[in-house]
């Protein structure tokens, strides 16, 4: 009887030691991954996973252009509402719209000053990705050579201007 109880206690203490080890391993894994995410996030422009709350009070106004060839020169055609028409390879006129592809605010708002959520660098990073994405989806428009965004910025009250472009593949 005594022997049985001792072996049961031993089994229980062994189990509890494994349980403690498992808990310690979980803690190390969970916070290790999270801290790695924070370290990565701090190096990315939009600070994803970085817990950088209210990091800036910045604004941006996006002016969108398409670059076309006119008399052997590249010129910028403004797109105040993000819409344009162009003939495709068969000559049929087609409609294109920035907002059909880009629904994310503040990038879908053109010509209006908008709050740059999570900082200006983050929104400019997203805007460059949006331009790259858009030009991938207008391959049947031979007249557009590139999309260009001229952005008026206000970083913590300090004005500036940035130009981003995406060449069609």
């Amino acid at each position: 009887m005594q022997k049985n109880r001792q072996s049961s206690d031993l089994r229980r203490s062994g189990r509890s030691r494994w349980a403690l080890l498992a808990r310690a391993a979980f803690v190390a894994l969970f916070f290790g991954l999270e801290l790695a995410g924070i370290a990565w996030g701090l190096r990315t422009p939009d600070h994803t996973l970085g817990f950088q709350m209210f990091n800036e009070t910045s604004r941006l106004t996006i002016h969108l252009f398409r670059e076309v060839r006119k008399k052997k020169r590249r010129v910028l055609v403004p797109l105040p509402d993000g819409r344009w028409q162009a003939p495709d390879a068969t000559g049929k006129l087609r409609d294109y719209a920035w907002q059909e592809r880009v629904h994310y605010s503040p990038l879908n708002v053109l010509g209006t000053s908008m709050h740059a959520r999570y900082g200006l660098d983050g929104q400019l990073f997203h805007l460059q990705a949006a331009l790259d994405d858009m030009v991938q989806h207008v391959t049947d428009d031979p007249s557009t050579l590139a999309l260009v965004a001229k952005v008026d910025t206000l970083r913590n009250g300090v004005p500036g201007r940035v130009e981003l472009r995406a060449e069609k593949p």
């Binding site: 800036e56 009070t57 913590n156 009250g157």
Partner: peptide, 8 residues
Amino acid sequence: SGAVLLPR
């Protein structure tokens, strides 16, 4: 410096 809060 407060430059982030001032515009807010």
